[in-house]
């Protein structure tokens, strides 16, 4: 009998392997992220002060949408080819397997956003303090976005056109993350401390980390019914 740890890392390995072999999957979200932010100055105008003012919000919204776009296919392939059934029938706790899938997904789609974000901060003339705060806020915020969004994905996976429903389900839940995330960048850019905003963002993540996998597992069982 395989141990739960083996199952966790087995699934993680399979997911990472699959993404590496399908290049489009992991190139899309960062490309979307970069394009949205890079096109913005063309529409707004090149005034550094205006750009610096809206930079935190724009970068955060772009990261949020990039995450949402990438999430739609999280369980879709597994659902279509029958692997999801095999996960549901595994002798290991389903929330644990869900967590492995989400970790793989975040490593491929969330982490690149965190790493690229300082560069985009420079592009939008964000002050140095803001540029430094940006990846920190995204590092805490994007896993929360993935965890919360996946609940919606699990509930809509059996629907052929679940995309719009997914957006409607998930966006209200994303609002707190967006507000605290943006505030955690805006404050240092204006010379204020941001420990409070980061703490609240961290609290959201700490709350989502154990609870979301339970909800996702239940959602998947309902969807496969």
């Amino acid at each position: 009998m395989s141990s739960p740890t083996q199952a966790f890392f087995g699934l993680l390995q399979r997911e990472l392997r699959l993404t590496i072999r399908r290049r489009n999957d992991w190139l899309n979200p960062p490309l979307f992220f970069i394009l949205v932010v890079a096109l913005l100055p063309l529409g707004i105008g090149p005034d550094p002060q205006t750009l610096a003012l809206i930079a935190p919000g724009v970068i955060w919204v772009a990261a949020l949408l990039a995450t949402l776009l990438s999430l739609e296919r999280l369980f879709r392939d597994d659902f279509d080819d029958g692997s999801l059934e095999q996960l549901l029938l595994s002798p290991h706790p389903l929330p644990l397997l869900v967590l492995a899938k989400l970790l793989a997904h975040w490593l491929v789609t969330g982490l690149p956003l965190v790493l690229i974000s300082p560069l985009l901060g420079v592009l939008l003339h964000l002050p140095l303090a803001g540029i430094l705060a940006l990846p920190v806020s995204l590092l805490i915020g994007t896993p929360a976005l993935t965890l919360i969004g996946a609940i919606g994905v699990a509930l809509t996976v059996s629907l052929r056109r679940g995309g719009i429903l997914l957006t409607l389900l998930v966006l209200p839940l994303y609002v707190p993350v967006l507000i605290f995330g943006t505030a955690a960048v805006t404050a240092p850019a204006q010379g204020l401390p941001n420990a409070g905003q980061l703490a609240l963002l961290g609290a959201l993540l700490v709350l989502a980390l154990p609870l979301a996998p339970l909800a996702i597992a239940a959602g998947l069982r309902v969807s496969s019914h």
Partner: peptide, 13 residues
């Protein structure tokens, strides 16, 4: 052990 009519294999592996 449940084997559905879908083979549950990953095409890229």
């Amino acid at each position: 052990l449940y084997l559905g009519h879908n083979p549950a294999l990953k095409n890229d592996l």
